[in-house]
Structures are given as structure tokens and as C-alpha cells.
Simulated scan of single mutants.
Amino acid sequence: MGANARTPQPADLAPAEFQQLYERLRRHADHGPDDRRGALNHITAETMRAAAGEVRLGRSVSLAAPVETVPAADNPKPSTHDMISSPAEHRHKPGLNFAYDRLAMNIHGDADSHIDALCHVVYEGRMYNGVAAGSAEPDGTPALSIDVAHDGIVGRGVLLDIPRLRGVPWLEPGDHVTTADLTAAEAAQHVRVGPGDLLFVRVGHRRRRNSLGPWDAAAARTGLHPTALEFLAERKVAVLGSDGNNDTAPSLGVAFPVHVLAINALGLHLLDYLQFGELRAVCEQAGRWSFLCVIAPLRLPAATGSPVNPIAVL
């Protein structure tokens, strides 16, 4: 396919079709009425031990993009980094001195790498597993905050490279990744997504941004088609991440359908705006698209998400 190639686009979902899909996925996520971990339940001691066997090269790779502090079309209110006391200030001072700084950021922006907590999406007044929006746990902490993952997320990561499959550098905004794309990428990369896996889907958002410059990603971006969430549910995927937002814009019918279906229906933590350039190169060279992956959100007991720096170990 050429650089502007697009696969035939799936039809929009009518509101009734979306609701039926939502209910089907909710049934897939039946971990009991008191469950707060969602799809993380698919990660077990056995899957973690097996994931450790993926380490063969002894090489670690970050999946996060550098935090941005300069306004851009997709990031009009970037993070602020204040150097309160820089190392240079102490160059000629005797004895012990400290440099220190402060960072403030919008966790759920359209540029910085982050993880969405299960409380991030409220649909029809409810969060994952029917928990009422604004509910608290018995200890008083907000229900379904990112603290659900305070012990970290460890498992086998799998990278499915959709631009590689289609023979293009990136997918254009408005395009969709379908179930057919995911299964075809598995076959082309000789890998199969399984229970407890941390699935990363490359759409080429970062490469397009680096090549063409930032654009209003809130209005136009590439993501998964809502029906592809059935693939994730059937395979018992534990986490979904992308170098984009995971949702296509403009969306099909319901706004942010993948966020609603993944987070609210399936209890699936999402990682948005990651960076796969180095990982893709290492996987291509090694001829292997699976690896040990460690995701460590910050300890933010009341937060709807966290900045994140996932580490792939090959």
C-alpha cells in the first residue's frame, strides 16, 4: 500500500448498536460486584512469571515520550517545569548545596504519556462495575482511582504495529484499527495476544507528529474501532496502550467510544500518547514483538490517572 493507503472504513455504530456492544462487554468483565481491579484480574502470578521469561537481550526501553513544556496545537496548556534552584547557581558555592524543581501537568492531555484510572470515565452516572460516580472506599479513598494499580502492573507486553502491517509510515487521522487489523498484525508478526497481556497498538501518531508537526489531535486522530474491543475482551487483555489516544476522532456516534467501552465496561486501564519508535526498532531487529513490561503509576490515591513511563525489557 502507498503512504496514503486506507483500509475500507467500518460503518458508524447506531446508538442502539453501541449500547448492545457496551452490555456485551460488561458481561465479559464479570469479576464480582465488589471488584475494583477490572481487567488487571487477568494478570496472575503465573502470567507474571511467564512474562519474566521474555527477557533475552537484557535491554530496557522506555515507552513514554518526554514531558513537554512548550505550547503546541495539541497541547495548548503544557506542563510547567520550574527550576527553583538550578545546579548552576551553586557552581561557586562551597560545601553542600541542593538543586530542586517543581512540575505541574494536565494528566489527561493530548501530548504527554499517561495512564487512565478506572474512575476517569463516567457513563450514565456510573463508573466501572456500576460504581456510582464519586463513591469512596471504606477507608475514605475515592473508588477506582489510579491507586488501584499502586503495586504496579507487570506482565507480557505485545506490540502490534498497524502501519507496518499496511505498509505505511502512519495511519491518517480519522482512520480506524479494526479486529481484522489486529489479527492480521498478529499473523504478520508471529505473535498471539493472550490472557493477562499488556497490548500496545501502534498507529504511528508520534511519527506523524514528529514528521509534520503537532495538530489539533482532539479533533482529528487515529484509534481503534469500537468493535475491536471485543477482541480484547475475548483475549482477556489486561491493559491497552497506544501512541495515540486509543479513540479515533471524529468519533463514531458516542464520544470517546473506546474509552467508554474499555474503561467503563471492561475495567481496562488505558495508556495514551506513548512512544514506540525505539521499541519498534528493537523488536524488528530481534524478530520478536513480545517483552516483559513494567508500568508504575505514581502513588496518587485520589487521582483519575497518572503520568507514566512504561518500561519494556527484552
Score class of each variant (00 low, 15 high):
residue 33 P to A: 14
residue 254 V to S: 04
residue 171 L to F: 01
residue 23 E to D: 12
residue 100 Y to A: 12
residue 289 W to I: 01
residue 17 E to H: 03
residue 242 S to H: 00
residue 210 N to H: 14
residue 232 L to W: 02
residue 282 V to T: 11
residue 250 P to H: 01
residue 123 Y to H: 15
residue 181 D to V: 04
residue 67 V to P: 00
residue 119 C to Y: 07
residue 115 I to P: 02
residue 14 A to T: 15
residue 44 T to G: 10
residue 162 I to W: 00
residue 109 G to D: 15
residue 23 E to T: 15
residue 260 V to T: 11
residue 152 G to C: 11
residue 188 A to W: 05
residue 69 T to Y: 14
residue 115 I to N: 05
residue 142 P to V: 05
residue 104 A to I: 14
residue 250 P to N: 01
residue 15 P to R: 13
residue 166 R to G: 07
residue 33 P to L: 15
residue 243 D to E: 04
residue 72 A to N: 10
residue 238 A to H: 03
residue 40 L to Y: 09
residue 304 T to F: 14
residue 71 P to S: 08
residue 73 A to K: 07
residue 41 N to M: 05
residue 135 S to G: 05
residue 229 L to S: 06
residue 257 P to E: 02
residue 195 P to S: 15
residue 313 V to R: 11
residue 192 R to F: 05
residue 289 W to N: 06
residue 157 G to N: 01
residue 5 A to K: 10
residue 41 N to V: 06
residue 122 V to D: 14
residue 94 P to F: 11
residue 89 E to F: 08
residue 169 P to N: 03
residue 161 D to V: 04
residue 68 E to R: 13
residue 258 V to P: 05
residue 262 A to G: 08
residue 259 H to A: 11
residue 158 V to I: 13
residue 211 S to D: 11
residue 196 G to S: 07
residue 234 E to F: 07
residue 163 P to F: 09
residue 208 R to E: 01
residue 63 L to Y: 04
residue 182 L to R: 06
residue 177 V to R: 11
residue 62 S to Y: 09
residue 80 T to A: 15
residue 185 A to W: 05
residue 279 L to Q: 00
residue 251 S to C: 08
